[in-house]
């Protein structure tokens, strides 16, 4: 008997692999800037993360008796790996990345049923698990002054990653971290920023360039229609709006909206994490609500929460709300309007 196949007998050019690869391509400028600022550390992060993530994916697919090849080549584990890698401080020891990959691929993704079934963004789960479990390692960022400035060759980097040499005094905090600590100490924004080499034109020196590169990648994805505009626009818009409000009220204690946009992981979150369709809202209206929620939560966590950046937490919280958002934002069916 012939196997019965239903129409349509033609298909558009889009494929899962293509979507995932576009996300990877969109990250290339950011990775380039990272490399320029942090040196080999970011590349070791990425390579290790890819090895661990694909490894875990293979093992779990094998244990689940599911096709391994298609799962590896759909590119989803690759995207998770790269996103996880660039949220971890460069030159982190290998086991940090191992645990992050484990949390992301095994716990957040495969234990829920693999691609398409994970309620939370795997890379963010991996990041948050690391942030909560290893706060010291996860907040020690190198000063973004270039590989030369840091004086780290590839060999030296590898020695640090695999634990034979300790990390030296060049590490420091991220701009958001500095602001948060400063405000806790009762300083005003101006006094914190003034005279601190961590800060540049828009936000942190170096960080602003990374964020610019991420923004370019995000805009490219919008142009290629890899992602739709609703989530990034709503998320960045709401973050900027609430930041402007508080900045206008009290510029002494609240950072400027530009600082909020360029200072932390706002662009990475808005373009690359919150747009993850699997864990986000699906409907057009739902995506706008999702984005607004993520933006506001980010600001709340940054300003009044315990962590310097709130992107990961806010997106995970919104992931939790996504099914409900989708349920209440179902579009009206053709012929049921009015």
């Amino acid at each position: 008997m012939k196997s019965l196949i239903s129409s349509p007998y033609t298909h558009g050019s889009s494929s899962l692999q293509q979507v995932m690869m576009q996300v990877v391509f969109a990250l290339i400028p950011a990775i380039g800037v990272y490399f320029a600022l942090f040196g080999w550390g970011i590349l070791t992060n990425i390579v290790l993360s890819i090895i661990f993530c694909l490894g875990f994916e293979t093992i779990i697919m094998w244990l689940r008796r599911r096709p391994i090849k298609s799962a590896l080549f759909d590119g989803s584990a690759l995207v998770t790996a790269i996103l996880l890698a660039i949220t971890i401080p460069p030159l982190s020891p290998w086991w940090i990345i191992f645990i992050g990959s484990l949390a992301a691929i095994v716990f957040a993704k495969q234990l829920y049923g693999g691609l398409g079934f994970n309620p939370f963004n795997p890379a963010m789960v991996g990041f948050v698990v690391l942030l909560i479990s290893f706060p010291k390692e996860m907040t020690q960022w190198l000063a973004p002054i270039g590989a030369e400035g840091n004086g780290m060759g590839l060999l030296h980097s590898l020695q640090i990653v695999f634990g034979s040499t300790g990390i030296d005094a060049l590490s420091g905090a991220t701009p958001l971290d500095v602001i948060k600590t400063g405000i806790r100490m009762g300083e005003t924004i101006n006094t914190i920023i003034a005279g601190n080499p961590t800060f540049g034109q828009l936000s942190g020196s170096g960080w602003e360039w990374i964020n610019l590169a991420i923004l370019i990648g995000g805009i490219w994805m919008l142009w290629r229609k890899t992602i739709r505009w609703q989530v990034p626009v709503a998320m960045l818009g709401s973050l900027a709006a609430i930041a402007s409000l508080f900045y206008l009220i009290d510029p002494e204690h609240y950072a400027s909206p530009l600082f909020h946009l360029f200072g932390g992981g706002a662009f990475l979150g808005a373009f690359f994490i919150a747009t993850d369709p699997v864990s986000g809202a699906t409907s057009t209206k739902g995506r706008i609500i999702f984005g607004i929620g993520a933006g506001l939560l980010t600001y709340i966590i940054r300003s009044w929460g315990g962590f310097p950046d709130g992107i990961a937490f806010s997106i995970l919280l919104m992931n939790m709300a996504a099914p409900m958002i989708d349920y209440y934002t179902q579009p009206k069916v053709f012929g049921q309007k009015g």
Binding site: V19, S70, L115, G116, T282, S283, P331, V333, F334
Partner: peptide, 24 residues
């Protein structure tokens, strides 16, 4: 036929549905 992958809820189907349904 091209192999089938899991649904990633990208919502493209809902965007093109002329009956305004939620295909996924």
């Amino acid at each position: 036929t091209k192999p089938e992958s899991p649904c990633i809820r990208c919502g493209e189907c809902a965007r093109v549905c002329p009956a305004e349904l939620l295909p996924q």
